[in-house]
C-alpha cells in the first residue's frame, strides 16, 4: 500500500465530498484504461447524486456504463470483468439496494481470491450513498456495513472528509481487493467540510485510522457522519473539563487496532459510536477486540452508542429517536469518565 502523500496545499482548491469522489474516479480512469464504472443512471444522468457527472462524456459509453436495474448483474458482471483483467467501480444508487446483489458479493466476489489460492484478484469497489439523519426512511438510510464485515474477503471503507474520500477511493480501486465503500450522502454537498484537496497522486492508506481530536480522558471511536457528532460531543465535554479523543476509523476492514489501543493506553476509557443497529454491529466488534487487547488499560467498561435495534423510520422525530444523538454520545462519555 502506498504511503500518504503530503498535501501540496499551495496548489489546492476547496472541494466538497462529492467533487473529491469525482476527482478520484476521473484520475483512476485516466490512469487505467482497463477500468470502468457501471451502475444505474451513472452515464447519461451522471448518477442520482451527480458523483459521475461528466464522466461518460469524458470516457465514453463503454467505460461509464448505464446498467439495467439489476444490482446482481452490476456486481456479478464486475466479478467476470475482474476475472478477465479489468478494474470496476460499481455504483449502488443507494447503498441500501446492495441487498439485491448480496449473493454475488458475499459468495462470489468476496471469496474469489480465497478459493483460487490467490490466483485471482478482485479489483472491484462497490460504492454508494449511505446513512441516516436524512429523512430517507427504511430503504434510503441504511448503514449495512456489518453484513459485509461478517463476510471475510471484503474491505470496508467509510470516509468522513473530502480528502479522505478521494485518497481512500483511489487506494481502494488500486488495492486489488473487493471493497464496499460507504459514502455519507449527508456530507456530499456539505460546504462546512469542503476543503483543499491535495493535488497529485494522493492516496490514503487503507487500514489506518485518523485522530480527529486529541484528548486524554476518554476515547471515542467512530466513522462516517458520527465523527462530527463525536467532535461536537467532545466540545461539550471539554466545557466540563473532560478531554475526549476522537478517532475516525476510516477503514473498518482492515481495522487499525494499533491506533485505538495506543489511545486507550492514554485515556483508559472507550466509547464506540456507529449509526447502525447495536446487535452484531461494528461497534460491538471494536469493543470486543479492545476488551481483549486493552483489558489491563481500561478503567471503565467500554460503551457502545448505536441506533436502536430497529429499522430507520421516516418522519423526523422517530428517525432521531432511533439514531444516536450528540446527547447520547455526551452521556456515554460522562458515564465512562465518571465510572
Amino acid at each position: 500500500m502506498s504511503a500518504t502523500v503530503t498535501p501540496d496545499t499551495a496548489k489546492a482548491t476547496k472541494k466538497n465530498f462529492l467533487n473529491a469522489l469525482k476527482e478520484a474516479l476521473t484520475e483512476e480512469m485516466e490512469r487505467n484504461p482497463m477500468m470502468i464504472i457501471q451502475g444505474e443512471d451513472v452515464g447519461l444522468l451522471g448518477g442520482a447524486f451527480g458523483v459521475t457527472e461528466g464522466l461518460q462524456e469524458q470516457f465514453g459509453t463503454h467505460r461509464v456504463v448505464d446498467m439495467p436495474i439489476s444490482e446482481a448483474a452490476i456486481i456479478g458482471s464486475a466479478v467476470g470483468m475482474a476475472l478477465n483483467g479489468m478494474t470496476v467501480v460499481c455504483e449502488m444508487q443507494f447503498i441500501d439496494f446492495i441487498s439485491c446483489g448480496f449473493d454475488q458479493i458475499v459468495n462470489n466476489m468476496a471469496t474469489y481470491h480465497y478459493r483460487t489460492a490467490g490466483e485471482v484478484n478482485m479489483p472491484i469497489v462497490v460504492r454508494g450513498p449511505a446513512g441516516g439523519y436524512s429523512g430517507g426512511a427504511l430503504y434510503h438510510s441504511q448503514m449495512n456495513e456489518a453484513w459485509f464485515a461478517n463476510s471475510p474477503g471484503l474491505q470496508i471503507v467509510c470516509p468522513s472528509t473530502p480528502s479522505d474520500a478521494k485518497g481512500l477511493l483511489k487506494a481502494a480501486i488500486r488495492s486489488g481487493n473487493p471493497t464496499i465503500f460507504y459514502e455519507v450522502k449527508n456530507l456530499y454537498r456539505d460546504s462546512k467540510i469542503a476543503e483543499d484537496l491535495p493535488e497529485g497522486d494522493y492516496l490514503v492508506p487503507l487500514g489506518k485510522a485518523a485522530i480527529r481530536r486529541p484528548g486524554k480522558d476518554l476515547t471515542y471511536v467512530t466513522y462516517g457522519q458520527n465523527v462530527y457528532h463525536c467532535l461536537q460531543a467532545a466540545e461539550t465535554l471539554a466545557g466540563q473539563g473532560i478531554e475526549a479523543e476522537v478517532i475516525d476509523l476510516r477503514t473498518l476492514v482492515p481495522l487499525d487496532e494499533a491506533t485505538i489501543l495506543e489511545s486507550i493506553k492514554r485515556t483508559n476509557r472507550l466509547v464506540v459510536v456507529n449509526e447502525a443497529p447495536m446487535t452484531c454491529g461494528f461497534a460491538g466488534e471494536v469493543v470486543a477486540r479492545m476488551s481483549d487487547l486493552a483489558f489491563e488499560y481500561l478503567d471503565a467498561p467500554p460503551v457502545r452508542v448505536t441506533r436502536l435495534d430497529t429499522p430507520v423510520p421516516w418522519v423526523e422525530p422517530l428517525e432521531r429517536y432511533v439514531l444516536p444523538s450528540v446527547d447520547d454520545i455526551v452521556n456515554a462519555g460522562l458515564r465512562v469518565a465518571k465510572f
Partner: peptide, 12 residues
Amino acid sequence: PVPPAEEGGKWV
C-alpha cells in the same frame, strides 16, 4: 398529529 418520537422504537 405527527406520531410521537418513541414510536420509532415500537413494533420491531
